[in-house]
Design a protein around this nucleic acid. Structure first.
Lengths: 194, 194
DNA sequence: CGAAAATTTGACATGACTCAACTGGAGTGG
DNA sequence: CCACTCCAGTTGAGTCATGTCAAATTTTCG
């Protein structure tokens, strides 16, 4: 739990009282996922959110041809869940599964509500998270509209080197919206550049 | 101002007291933009947010070759501003200008803070907006990774018919990340389909 | 009405995809 | 611990979607 407290205090720039920490503790519980295990499957309504203590997950959709398209990676100190599904209570279009063995703290939205209402630090943390997510996603969109496959890879390389080392190349390709073959070729040329 | 009150009440699902309405009124002031007039220029820090009463704006970047890439359209009841720039107080990478003569209510972030802190409906409105923005942007990202140019156009057509009628075709192309020529060809084929 | 901008059309170039074959390393079971 | 399988990644060849450039046409707006 300490991880989560520290994260909330950092993002909110506030301090949590012991009582608040207890409230939080009682709302979350630990959960482990084995590699390849699902956190959420397409068609289910997402009822849980998780905060990763250790490990890595991905969120992706599968198209008619069976190709996977990764929308989001998460590692330590990131949140997991499909906000579209839980805010509107609709079945999710996405799958979320563990890419490594993963430990997280999970809660439900129902349990989250009172925390948000009664703990200012949590409310602020969530606002900050929402903002950051939106900004990140706007950046990614900009990259997607503006850049070629190679530029997008370089951009990703510069922005998220940790993720690059942590996820297999095929998944990175999927995240960037290019084929694994194309990414392989881009990487081959990479050394040859300026 | 009435527009804004109604919007806040709708999104928050709460009622504003007269006192709260006064607070809001004193924080916002009306502003008009002529067609083609800038609301924000690249390199400036975005210090204002606007709520559109009437009109339409776009947010876009310009690349080295001088091509414009539209990241966002806004029309009545939408907000205008670069959240990346104002939350982190960094110079914006984007321009925002009016596509039609536009009337808005504007405020600064400094003036917005107390409203958020003291008016629950405003806090909730903002949270809802943030969530929706993120969801919309995730959808768009998904479309961008998953679909061909033609599918993206159809998707846009289905999701935002109002925008289609309101913005010139070249801007729609830019928003979708395709060339104006390609969009023109897609539209020509559109009638011929199923 | 006329100039400038937006859209359309055509011809051509190319980035990225697909399919298929090959390679190497990781994980598994004997 | 070795042999075997299997999957991820690489490489090559051919194709297709989309971009580019340029000219023709239509629309917009002063």
């Amino acid at each position: 739990m300490e991880h989560l407290f520290r994260y909330a205090e950092k993002l909110s720039d506030m301090t949590l009282s012991e009582k608040e920490k207890e409230m939080i503790s009682s709302a979350f519980k630990p959960k482990k996922l084995r590699k390849r295990q699902y956190f959420l499957q397409e068609g289910d309504v997402c009822k849980f959110v998780g905060f990763i203590i250790k490990g890595a997950t991905r969120m992706y959709s599968v198209d008619q041809k069976g190709n996977e398209h990764i929308l989001r990676f998460s590692i330590e100190e990131w949140w997991v869940g499909d906000s579209e599904s839980y805010t509107d209570l609709v079945p999710s279009k996405y799958n979320i599964d563990a890419v490594e063995d993963t430990e997280m703290l999970v809660t439900t939205f129902a349990l989250m509500q009172p925390l948000m209402a009664e703990i200012p630090a949590i409310a602020k943390m969530i606002r900050t998270m929402d903002q950051r997510s939106y900004i990140a996603s706007q950046r990614r969109m900009h990259a997607s509209i503006t850049m070629t496959a190679e530029e997008r890879y370089d951009d990703f390389y510069g922005s998220y080197p940790q993720l690059l080392q942590r996820f297999p190349q095929g998944m990175i390709a999927s995240y960037l919206g290019i084929s694994p073959e194309t990414l392989s070729r881009i990487r081959k040329n990479a050394g040859v550049k300026p």
